[in-house]
């Protein structure tokens, strides 16, 4: 500072201009306000956490829903979609088979018959799978083979039932022959 005595004086005695002290309750006021802010922030956090949980749940729900939709889209089309004309016939055979099974259920089962039935079921499943990937021209042939299998199953069940009903005390042996003859 050049010649200004006032500036020089102030600069020389600068510290003496900062002698006043604030009341101690200024800090308590600050502290209280900080507490209130923290409280607000904490309750805000709680709200935020609840909101986040809800969002997470919704996201999980949406994800699961999406997954199932995808799964369904990935599932092969049913017989109704591919060959609607034969679906009715299939249902008819199935009903008949179910009925026979129920009748059969009251008698003792032959392991061999069960195996044969199982093999027929597998053949049906294979044919169904084939049908889903079949080229347009071959569909009819596969469907007729499919219906043949159903027919065979019904026949097998009928014969088994006949045999059991006519000779209730007979062992399993004749059943095997019957099953094999189809």
């Amino acid at each position: 500072m050049q010649g200004d005595p006032l500036e020089q004086f102030v600069n020389r005695n600068r510290a003496a201009f900062d002698e006043e002290l604030p009341e101690p309750d200024v800090w308590s006021g600050i502290s209280q306000q900080l507490d209130a802010q923290q409280q607000r922030r904490r309750s805000w956090w709680q709200v935020a956490r609840i909101a986040a949980s809800v969002l997470l749940l919704l996201a999980c729900g949406a994800l699961l829903g999406g997954y199932f939709m995808y799964q369904r889209a990935q599932q092969p089309p049913s017989l109704e979609e591919i060959a609607p004309a034969y679906a009715e016939m299939e249902a008819e055979y199935q009903r008949e088979i179910d009925q026979k099974y129920q009748q059969l259920a009251s008698y003792q089962h032959s392991k061999v018959v069960e195996q044969d039935l199982k093999r027929l079921d597998e053949a049906v499943q294979d044919l169904k799978a084939e049908l889903q990937h079949a080229p347009p021209g071959r569909e009819e042939e596969i469907v007729s083979r499919l219906l043949q299998s159903y027919r065979a199953k019904v026949m097998l069940l009928e014969r088994v039932l006949n045999r059991i009903q006519t000779k209730p005390t007979e062992s399993e042996k004749p059943n095997i022959d019957e099953a094999r003859s189809i």
Partner: peptide
């Protein structure tokens, strides 16, 4: 926070 207040409150009050 109190320490920071203690360091600067006097100058700032003046």
């Amino acid at each position: 926070q109190f320490e920071l207040y203690r360091l600067y409150s006097k100058a700032m009050y003046n």
